[in-house]
C-alpha cells in the first residue's frame, strides 16, 4: 500500500515535471501563492504570532514579493526551514525564494548555484559580556570562556579573530541559541558570540538588559539577503527589484502611508513616478503590473518602515540602523536607480 503511494506520487510527479521549473513566475501565478522559505523562528526576523500569522523582517520581504507578483500580501505560504534543510528546499523547488537571514558567501552563490538578490541586512559577529566583567573591547578577552555554536561559520570566525590578535580563549560548545542564552546567563561562559542582531535580540529578553554590553568589535561580515535558484533570471530580477523598490522608496520618502496618494497621479519627481508606475514601463519589463511597487510598499512599508516595525529601536530588540542606514545617511543600504 505504501509502495503504491510512492509509485503513485512518482507517476504524478513525472507528469507534472514537464510543466514545472521553467518559469517560477508562471508557477506562482498558477498556484496563486508564493512559497517562501523562512526560519522556524528567529526573533524579529520571522516567527508566527499567537494566531499563527508570520511576522518579522524577513517575512516582510516575502510579503512584499507576494504583493508585487500577486497583488496580495497574504498570498504567501511560509515554509519553515532549518539550517540543514533550507538550501535543499530552494534547490528542489519546494520554495520559490528563501528569505531566511542567510549569509551571502562565495560558495553558496557559486557552488550551491543560488542567486542572492541583494542584501537586506548587514550583520556581523559580535560578543556580549556582563557589564560587571569590566571589558570594553573584544581584544581584552584573553583567556575568556566563550559560548559558541558548533558547526557554524561563527566558530571559524572566532578562531580566526583570536589567532589574529594573538590571544587565547576556551570554547564552550553549544547547539542552539537557547542553550547559549542559558549557559551565558548561568555564568558558564564569560562571553557569548553570535551574529550581532541575534545578540541584541537575546539581550532584549534578559531580565536586566542593562547589565550586559555588546562589545564594539564586529569580527565578521554577514550580509544577509533573500536568494533564489540559478537558472530563472526573470524571477531573480523580480525578487531583486522588489527589495530595491523598498530601499528606493525609503530614499525617496515613499511610505506605506503616502504611497496611495503618490501613486494616484504623476508627481514632480520622475524617479518616484517611474517607481510607482505612473510613468514609464518598468512593471511591464518585469512581467508585472504597472503598480507592482505600489503594492509591495503598501504591504509592509518601505525598507525603513520594515526595519523599524520589526527590529528597530522602538521594538524590544532595539537594533540601531548602523550599517543598515541608507547610503545618504552613512549606511550601506543602496539601490541602483529605477530608470
Amino acid at each position: 500500500m505504501k509502495k503504491s503511494v510512492i509509485l503513485g506520487a512518482l507517476t504524478v510527479a513525472g507528469l507534472a515535471a514537464g510543466a514545472a521549473s521553467a518559469a517560477t513566475l508562471d508557477d506562482v501565478r498558477a498556484r496563486g501563492k508564493l512559497n517562501c522559505g523562512v526560519t522556524t523562528g528567529l526573533t524579529g526576523f520571522a516567527a508566527p504570532d499567537a494566531n499563527g500569522v508570520w511576522e518579522g523582517f524577513d517575512v516582510g520581504m516575502c510579503r512584499a514579493v507576494a504583493a508585487a507578483v500577486l497583488g496580495d500580501a497574504t498570498a504567501v505560504e511560509f515554509v519553515p526551514t532549518t539550517g540543514q534543510t533550507r538550501f535543499t528546499a530552494l534547490a528542489s523547488g519546494e520554495v520559490d525564494m528563501l528569505a531566511r537571514n542567510t549569509t551571502w558567501t562565495f560558495s553558496r552563490d557559486v557552488d550551491l548555484k543560488f542567486e542572492f538578490t541583494g542584501v537586506n541586512y548587514y550583520d556581523g559577529q559580535g560578543f556580549i559580556v556582563p557589564r560587571s566583567l569590566g571589558v570594553s573591547s573584544a581584544k581584552d578577552l584573553d583567556g575568556a570562556t566563550v559560548c559558541i555554536q558548533t558547526g557554524t561559520t561563527t566558530e571559524l570566525n572566532l578562531a580566526d579573530f583570536f589567532r589574529a590578535n594573538n590571544i587565547s580563549y576556551e570554547p564552550v560548545p553549544i547547539e542552539t541559541n537557547a542553550e547559549g542564552q542559558q549557559l551565558y546567563l548561568a555564568g558558564s561562559c564569560d562571553t557569548y558570540t553570535t551574529d550581532a542582531s541575534g545578540l541584541a535580540a537575546t539581550r532584549a529578553t534578559f531580565e536586566n538588559p542593562g547589565d550586559h554590553v555588546i562589545l564594539p568589535e564586529i569580527i565578521s561580515k554577514e550580509p544577509l539577503g533573500p536568494l533564489v535558484r540559478h537558472g530563472d533570471n526573470e524571477w531573480g530580477d523580480i525578487v531583486r527589484w522588489t527589495l530595491n523598490a523598498l530601499v528606493t522608496a525609503e530614499e525617496l520618502g515613499v511610505t506605506s502611508a503616502n504611497v496611495a496618494e503618490l501613486a494616484a497621479g504623476p508627481t514632480g519627481n520622475p524617479e518616484v513616478n517611474r517607481l510607482l508606475g505612473t510613468e514609464g514601463e518598468l512593471g511591464a519589463m518585469l512581467g508585472l503590473e504597472a503598480d507592482w511597487a505600489v503594492k509591495a510598499i503598501a504591504a509592509g512599508g518601505n525598507y525603513g518602515e520594515l526595519f523599524e516595525t520589526n527590529i528597530g529601536e522602538n521594538t524590544p530588540i532595539g537594533l540601531a540602523r548602523g550599517l543598515n542606514a541608507q547610503w545618504t545617511e552613512g549606511g550601506l543600504i543602496y539601490s541602483p536607480p529605477f530608470r
Binding site: 522556524t40 526573533t43 516567527a47
Partner: peptide, 21 residues
C-alpha cells in the same frame, strides 16, 4: 526537518518578542 512538533512550537513561541526567554 522544520516541522513544528511540540518542541518546534516551543522554539517558535520563544522566537516572538513576547515570550523570548
Amino acid at each position: 526537518i522544520g516541522l513544528f512538533d511540540p518542541l518546534g512550537i516551543a522554539s517558535a513561541v520563544r522566537a516572538t518578542t513576547d515570550w523570548n526567554g
